[in-house]
């Protein structure tokens, strides 16, 4: 009886701790979003923000808050959450803690698809570009895994090598297309800069359902993904339909990455860093990994976006540069640990 009570107590404490972690993450996300609304070249009070959002009187303050601050305060957390969840999925699928939508070339593939869709097929609509981004991410994952598998096995480093190579290739093609299509350069640079600034709010409304579908798919797969953290033989002997789960999970990754790229362009390394934070907080079960990665991804991206306004104040730094620096350091640390 004592043993049962003790076990129960321990279980209860663990779930209580997770509850507090989630509560803390939600509060932190709210705070960072408020920071995003109030802080910047000009600092607004919470009262001014509230006034601008509830009753837009057409004043300059209201226009800046509702037209410029609000979109980025919504797009940054949504894109961060999407990339965080995509990172969790990619790291599990490749059984590789240094994998991410970036190191697998998915961001680059999505960007290339957006550029091709615009220049070659004349796609202009946001829906069309989102679809192109998701398709590009999906095709890239097929190509990268295909090439890595063809080169003899899906070893973690091999996948990343193929992914990084593909990413440089995609970047090169994008550069070539942009150089020869000056007319569209301005519009496309908007996509490719990897930033949350100057995004219309329609991008948020457009990206939200795609992220929700991708997240729902990921959560439905979460128990199977738990089992797929073990080797293929073990997962298969537990009864996991490996091919189906992999296929659907890559679809989820593509939707999440594609949505993030369609909203913010390729914001570097968010999907690499965030899963590590999530696992530290809540452990390895995917239900929790995904939830914590969504929240901490939202916080991380929003904080980076706020930081971008101040690192070289009064000029605004590209947020992708900030996440790239943090991500590159994290990647180096992880690589050194792996090689050690």
């Amino acid at each position: 009886m004592t043993a049962i009570a003790a076990t129960y107590d321990r279980g209860a404490r663990v779930s209580l701790a997770k509850g507090w972690i989630y509560a803390g993450l939600v509060v932190a996300m709210g705070i960072t979003m408020l920071m995003s609304l109030t802080l910047g070249y000009k600092v607004y009070s919470l009262g001014e923000v509230w006034a601008a959002l509830t009753a837009n009187d057409g004043s300059e303050t209201a226009t800046v808050i509702a037209g410029l601050r609000l979109p980025r305060a919504l797009i940054a957390p949504l894109a961060g959450a999407a990339l965080g969840m995509a990172g969790v999925l990619v790291q599990t699928l490749s059984r590789n803690r240094i994998a991410s939508p970036d190191t697998l070339g998915l961001n680059a593939g999505a960007s290339l698809a957006v550029v091709l869709a615009t220049v070659v097929f004349g796609v202009q609509s946001l829906v069309g570009l989102s679809l192109a981004a998701a398709t590009g991410a999906l095709l890239t994952s097929v190509v990268v895994f295909g090439v890595a598998a063809g080169a003899g096995g899906l070893s973690p480093l091999k996948i990343v090598l193929v992914g990084v190579t593909f990413a440089s290739l995609a970047h090169a093609v994008v550069e070539i297309i942009l150089t020869s299509n000056e007319a569209q350069l301005q519009q496309l640079l908007f996509w490719l800069s990897g930033a949350f600034v100057d995004r219309p709010i329609s991008l948020f409304y457009n990206g939200l359902p795609v992220v929700l579908v991708g997240a729902a798919l990921a959560f439905v797969l979460s128990v199977a993904l738990d089992a797929m953290q073990a080797d293929d033989s073990t997962a298969a002997s537990l009864g996991v339909p490996l091919v189906a789960v992999r296929g659907l999970a890559f679809l989820a990754v593509s939707l999440l990455t594609g949505a993030a790229v369609s909203m913010a362009g390729p914001v570097a390394f968010v999907g690499l860093v965030v899963p590590h934070i999530a696992r530290r907080l809540v452990g390895l079960r995917h239900r929790h990994q995904l939830a914590a990665a969504a929240l901490s991804g939202a916080i991380y991206a929003t904080l980076a976006d706020v930081a971008a306004r101040f690192v070289i104040y009064p000029v605004e730094a590209p947020v992708g540069a900030i996440t790239a620096v943090v991500g590159a350091v994290a990647l180096l640390v992880l690589l050194m640990r792996r090689l050690a």
Partner: peptide, 25 residues
């Protein structure tokens, strides 16, 4: 049930998390 030859799982998985995988089916 099958315990494969040299099975593997993430190094930072806890024993309990590993054992829970057995409940998948």
């Amino acid at each position: 049930g099958l315990l494969a030859q040299s099975p593997s799982a993430p190094q930072d998985m806890t024993v309990e998390e590993l054992v829970r995988l057995g409940r998948y089916p």
